[in-house]
Amino acid sequence: MSSPSTPPPAGAARPSRGRPPRLDQARTVEAALVLLDESGLDALTMRRLADAVGVQAGALYRHFATKQDLLTAMAERILAGCATPPPDADWSGRLTALARGMRTALLAHRDGARVYAGTHSTGPNTLGFAETLIGVLREAGFGHEDAARTALTVVHFTVGHTLEEQAALQPGDQGPADPEQLREAVTAARFPHLSAALPVLTSTDFTAHFEFGLGLLLQGLRALHRPGPAA
């Protein structure tokens, strides 16, 4: 006669006759983001994620056919809450708020920009952000083609900037460039312009860099802007 089994700890999931636990897609994405923050994108594997949620690796493929599908779902989750610019601001203020909000969302997770880059989610967060961004521009009088290209420019600038920012600030890194190495390589006699710009080029004030680039983008848009009804 077999001895009675030891009951599981309080709060633990009870196995259902050997069947794997039911996999919840939203909780799996949240678990993936936790692993991302702990170890970075390179260490995020489907096997590690499966272990974290307590299933066999093959079970993940019911929701995510490839790792790229997982990254797309993570990118969609990262953009949650980004499509809410201040309603009382003008078009440039609302566009600025959207770009800043996207950068903040990407920076909230380690390698967030790497996760987002190259994904093409059709989820409500991603499409809502794009809809709001293009809507701000069209309501300001930009034609649909200019609005679409501007939206791409804003997203590409924000993602690209944040990619460089996060790469430079990985644990153990000293920033975008080692000042001592550059001082040895960039002599005033040979590279006078680089020498003069060295303090800015080696600065880790990425917010200042971002705001300057965003300001240039807005200046160009104001020159292009022709108020009128949305096209």
Rank of each mutant, 00 (worst) to 15 (best):
R100T: 13
V115H: 00
G118R: 01
S92A: 15
L152A: 13
G135M: 05
L107I: 04
F142S: 12
A167W: 04
L106S: 09
H156C: 10
G112P: 08
R149T: 12
A130Y: 05
T158K: 05
I134Y: 01
G135S: 08
R114T: 10
R149S: 12
E131I: 03
G118M: 02
F157K: 09
L127V: 06
R149F: 13
A147C: 06
S121F: 02
F142N: 14
R138W: 01
A117H: 12
D111I: 04
L106M: 13
T162I: 02
G93W: 04
R114W: 12
Q166D: 03
Q166E: 10
A99D: 07
G141D: 11
L133Q: 10
A99H: 02
A148E: 07
T104I: 13
I134C: 06
R103T: 11
L95E: 08
S92L: 14
L98P: 06
R94V: 11
T153C: 08
E131D: 14
T126D: 08
H161Q: 12
A97Q: 03
A167H: 10
L137M: 14
A147Q: 05
H156D: 15
V155P: 05
T126W: 01
W91C: 08
L98R: 04
D146W: 00
T104L: 10
W91A: 10
T96P: 01
H109Y: 07
A168T: 11
W91L: 03
L106D: 05
